[in-house]
Design a protein around this nucleic acid. Structure first.
Lengths: 195, 195
DNA sequence: TCTGGATGTATCGGCTCGATACATCGACGC
DNA sequence: GCGTCGATGTATCGAGCCGATACATCCAGA
């Protein structure tokens, strides 16, 4: 996956910590609940990511109000720093292939609440054309080899096409809703209205 | 992904070469067409896999009937050996978690034509319970945190649930069809009836 | 003639992931 | 009291995947 995947995890971590400080175990649980149907993060990538973020000063260890009486070495709670918030905003602003590929789209979507309306729209449209591209290439390939496919392969293709078509329709509805919302009430600020 | 992924690629390669001998580039194209909607294999895993299969004697380089007049070093066409066919049958017989996880189910399904009816059924049912498991855990988590989710997160969860539910219904139909077929005409031999 | 794209083989580094190790804590049975 | 089981918690390692890249050939079309 090279460097591309790393950004996704970074966004997921920073976005989660933006809501509330968390420790590793809980962070993973929340992320895997949030994205349960789409992907799963593992400790093998989470902890290195946390270390990297710590070294770059984007997150910090939160000291508990009362240090335990005994030397109870335990939970390491991370919180977002000011630099981390800046970085999060930066990541949320970027609408590029890295936002609408399979692995990353779900994460970006999950944090749409903190994303500007214009960026949301560009990501949704990018995702849609990515899927339509794929539909085209599969349909073309299917037309060229239609006759020599057995029924199982055919059924697999049919199901795959239908799933993607369904996601395109879903995106169409979302895009329409976004457009309507931005025309009716463009004043809604999505990043500063949470408690 | 560790060792699990490797078996999938191995199955995909052996299964493809079972139909007709192929060279690397064409092999990749076919696989990515066959599984276009689900996954994409890269050269970085394909060529090492081919080398490994070659070393283990499961595939062999096919010598062209006429060696080119000039020393035209080019296409390396691979074909299945007898050991390769045995190994393919072995892989096709195994119905375990490695057959119904996300990454591998599509590949196994694509070669159902060469799979015994009983194994097909077990894989389909395994896949279904895997998905139902996931539905349960997501629904539970959703019920526990329902109130504090923003509309985008909620919509993402809803769409994810619906997609998985849809796949479960698809599996239900396939299972019903399989059952009906095996009751009506259990004599169908799936491995030796192709031209 | 030249240029761009498809075809074709192959590798590398950065990174991911499942497995695993190790430790603490509370609940439960006995 | 005491064992033990599962959940919580931090952390690492090796196997191996993948995007990018390099390099070469061939051919169609400007």
């Amino acid at each position: 996956m090279a460097g591309g995947q790393r950004r996704v995890l970074e966004l997921a971590v920073l976005g989660s910590l933006h809501e509330t400080p968390l420790h590793g175990y809980e962070l993973r649980k929340r992320l895997n609940t949030l994205l349960g149907m789409f992907r799963a993060f593992s400790y093998g990538s989470l902890y290195p990511c946390l270390r990297s973020l710590l070294e770059r000063g984007l997150i910090a260890e939160e000291q508990p109000a009362q240090p335990p009486i005994v030397g109870g070495r335990s939970k390491i709670v991370y919180k977002l720093t000011a630099e981390g918030k800046e970085r999060l905003q930066e990541l949320l602003t970027q609408a590029g292939p890295s936002a609408w590929e399979d692995e990353s789209f779900g994460v970006h979507f999950a944090f749409f609440r903190h994303t500007e309306a214009e960026v949301r729209l560009r990501i949704l449209e990018g995702r849609r054309s990515r899927l339509e591209e794929r539909l085209d290439s599969v349909r073309t390939a299917l037309a060229r080899t239609r006759e020599r496919l057995d029924s199982y392969t055919l059924e697999l293709q049919r199901h795959g096409l239908e799933s993607v078509e369904r996601e395109v329709r879903w995106l169409n509805e979302l895009i329409a809703t976004e457009r309507r919302a931005s025309e009716e009430g463009p004043a809604t600020d999505t990043t500063s209205s949470d408690e």
